[in-house]
Design a protein around this nucleic acid. Structure first.
Lengths: 340, 340
DNA sequence: TTCAGCATTCAAAGCGCTTTGGAAGTTTCG
DNA sequence: CGAAACTTCCAAAGCGCTTTGAATGCTGAA
C-alpha cells in the first residue's frame, strides 16, 4: 500500500493525501479526517526511503560509539544511548551508530555518513578538552550537538551538566565540615568534564583558604580497582586525607574498600562524596553507607540532547542551544564532620 | 556530485557508471578503472536514500535495545553491539537501534520498522526460552537472526555458543577433581542460555552419579552482590558446597568475597569456575586468583551475527544458518582437588 | 451579471539511483 | 564475405514520496 494506491482508493490526488497526512493547512478538515481514516484502515505507512529521497532528510541521527572502552564508561554510554534512542523513537527519528573501526578512521566514517547523507546530524559525547571532531564536523557541514563541552572559539550547540559547580558544592560541604585534607579521585583530565570538576574542587579550596596539594589529586580510571589502589596509597601516607571526592561511584567503592581494610568507618573517620550518574544498577542511595553524591541522570541527558538536536534541525530560526544543567548535591551518611 | 554529473563528466551513461561502480560484469575493465578514478577524484558518494528507494533495500540492520537493564547485562550488550557495529561498518551497512519505549510497544516498533522499510533485517539477542518476538517478526515477514537460541518448531537462523557443552565440561572438571557438592549460580532460567547451562550442569552430575540437589542451584542476577549473598547462604549451610559454578564473573566476584569473609582460599578450600564473555575490563586471567573459566567472546559473536545476517540477505540461495560455537574451558588457579 | 479573492484540489516535475530491453560495435566461424 | 554470437554501452522507465504552479469551484463585492 503506497501513496498512489491510497489516493486511488480515496479518489484524491497524491498531493492532497500527502498534505492531509502531513498536516498542511491547505486541505479541508473533512478530507483530512477521511484520509486519516483510510490510511489507518489500510495500514498505510509512508516509505522512509522515498521520503528521504524527496526531502533530502534522512530522519536519522548518528551517535559515535566510544573508542575507549572501560567498564563504567561503557555503562555510562549505554545509559546515555538508551535515553537517546527512547527520545528519538518518540519523535519519529532513528539512531544509528557510527564507529571508527580498525579499517576506517573516524574521519572516514564521518565523511561517508555526510556524503551519502545517511544521517541528518550527529551526537558527540565525552568530548576532550580540545576535541578535533568539532572542527571536522563543521568542515563537513554536518549539524551536531555535543554532550558535554569543549574549548572551542566558535559557539556550538551542547548540553552539559555543571561539573564545576557540582564539585565546588561538594568540596565546600567538606570544608564546611572542617575537612582540610581532601583527596580528589578524578578521571583523565584530557576529558573536559574531568577538567571542570578539578576546577570546581580547586575553587572551593581557595574559598576555604586551603592550598592546593597535588599529592591529593589523582587522575585514574573510573573503576573500583583504581579507587582501592589510590585511596590505599593516600591513607597510608604520613598525613592522610580525611575526605575523598570521587568522579564515579565505582571509584567510591574502591575507596570504601581501602578504608575498611584499614578499619576506618565512612562518614565518621573518613568522608566520601562521589558523582552519581543515576545508572540503573549502581545507586548512591543503596551504597553502604548511603553515599553523599552530586547527581544528574545521564539517561535524561541523552533524551534532552536528542530533543535539542531535532529542534535545531527542524526549526531553523531556533537559537543555537547551549544548555547547562545544575547538579544537586544530596547529603547522605557517607559524610560527616572531620574526626579529631 | 551525483551520478548524472559524474557520467556527464565521463561522457558515459548513468547505466554504465552505475554498473562500473557496482562491479557488474558487462563493463570493460578499461572503463571501470576510468570510472573508479573519476569517482574518487570528484569524491562521488552514491546517495543512500536514492539507492534505498531504487533497490528497496535500506542497507540498515536493526538491533533491539534490551528492556531489562542491569549492570552486567548492559556491559554484555555494549560489547555485543560494538561487534555488530564494527562488522556492519566494514560491510557498508548501518546499525540502528530499536527500542520499546514507554509510549510504544515492541510490536509497534517492529511494525513501524517493517512497513516503512527502515531496516532490512533485525538482530535479536538474549532470547527467552519461548520468545514471542520470533513469531512476531516472522508474521511481519522481516528477516532476522537470533543471538542465542530459543524453542521454536520452525527453523530460524541463529548464532549461539554451546552453553550446555561448556557447563558440562566445567562441571565435569569439578567432578573429576573429586567435588560432589557443586553449587550452580545461574541466571534467570527464563533465558535460554541459562537453561542450557543448567542442562549441561545436570548432565555432568548424572555422568558422575551425583543426585541433583536443588538447594545448590540458584537463579539470580549476574551481579557481585547477588553472588555474595547466595554463596554466603550456601557456605553457611550444614553441608556447604566445595565448588561453585557461576554464569558470570560478576557473580564469581561475589563468591570470592563470601569465601574470603569465611577464611576460605579459592582453588584450595573452594573451587570456582565462571563463564567469561571476554569483556574489556572484566578479565578472568586478572582475577585474583586467576579464574578457571569457560570463555567465548561476545564481541566476536556480534561480528559473526552481522556477517551471517548479511549473507542471508544478499545470497538468497544460502542455506539458513544455524551456528553453534564450541566453548573453551581454560583451567587456571581457582580450581583444585576437593579439600578433604 | 462579472470578476476578484479564497479555499480546495490536482497534474506533473523532480529527488538520484537501479535495471530492463535494446542498440551499436566487434569478433567468430561456416 | 555474411550472419551469428558476443561485448560494451545506452535510453528510459521506474522506486514512492514532496512540492511547485495551476486549475477548479465557490463566495461575495462591484
Amino acid at each position: 500500500m503506497n501513496l498512489r494506491d491510497l489516493s486511488a482508493i480515496l479518489n484524491l490526488s497524491q498531493t492532497t493525501v500527502s498534505r492531509a497526512l502531513n498536516g498542511f493547512p491547505e486541505v479541508s478538515e473533512d478530507t483530512r479526517t477521511r484520509v486519516r481514516a483510510a490510511a489507518e484502515l489500510h495500514g498505510y505507512r509512508p516509505s522512509a526511503a522515498a521520503r528521504r529521497l524527496a526531502t533530502g532528510q534522512s530522519g536519522t541521527l548518528g551517535v559515535v560509539f566510544p573508542r575507549e572502552r572501560n567498564m563504567l564508561g561503557d555503562l555510562l554510554f549505554t545509559e546515555f544511548l538508551g535515553g537517546c534512542v527512547e527520545q528519538a523513537s518518540d519523535l519519529g527519528y532513528d539512531i544509528t551508530l557510527a564507529m571508527a573501526s580498525g579499517t576506517q578512521s573516524e574521519e572516514h566514517v564521518y565523511r561517508r555518513a555526510v556524503r551519502s547523507a545517511r544521517v541528518d546530524a550527529m551526537i558527540l559525547s565525552s568530548p576532550l578538552l580540545a576535541d578535533p571532531r568539532l572542527d571536522l564536523l563543521r568542515g563537513l557541514n554536518m549539524p551536531f550537538i555535543v554532550h558535554g563541552r569543549t574549548t572551542s572559539a566558535v559557539p556550538y550547540p551542547y548540553l552539559d551538566i555543571d561539573n564545576e559547580g557540582a564539585f565546588l558544592k561538594a568540596t565546600k560541604l567538606l570544608t564546611d565540615l572542617g575537612h582540610r585534607r581532601i583527596a580528589l579521585l578524578n578521571f583523565d583530565a584530557l576529558y573536559n568534564f574531568a577538567n571542570d570538576r578539578l576546577n570546581g574542587y580547586l575553587h572551593a579550596l581557595t574559598l576555604a583558604g586551603i592550598d592546593r596539594d597535588d599529592g591529593l589529586i589523582s587522575f585514574a580510571p573510573m573503576t573500583e580497582f583504581s579507587g582501592t589502589l589510590e585511596a590505599g596509597r593516600l591513607l597510608d601516607a604520613s598525613s592522610p586525607p580525611t575526605a575523598f571526592l570521587c568522579s564515579s561511584i565505582a571509584q567510591a567503592m574502591g575507596v570504601r574498600r581501602a578504608a575498611r581494610e584499614r578499619g576506618l568507618v565512612l562518614g565518621k573517620d573518613v568522608s566520601l562524596i562521589a558523582h552519581d550518574d543515576r545508572l540503573h544498577e549502581i545507586r548512591a542511595e543503596s551504597f553502604e553507607p548511603p553515599l553523599t553524591a552530586t547527581q544528574s541522570s545521564i539517561g535524561d541527558a541523552g533524551k534532552r540532547v536528542v530533543k535539542l538536536l531535532i529542534t535545531q534541525l527542524t526549526d531553523h530560526e531556533a537559537p543555537m542551544a547551549g544548555e547547562v544543567w545544575p547538579v544537586d548535591l544530596v547529603v547522605r551518611a557517607s559524610t560527616g564532620p572531620v574526626a579529631h
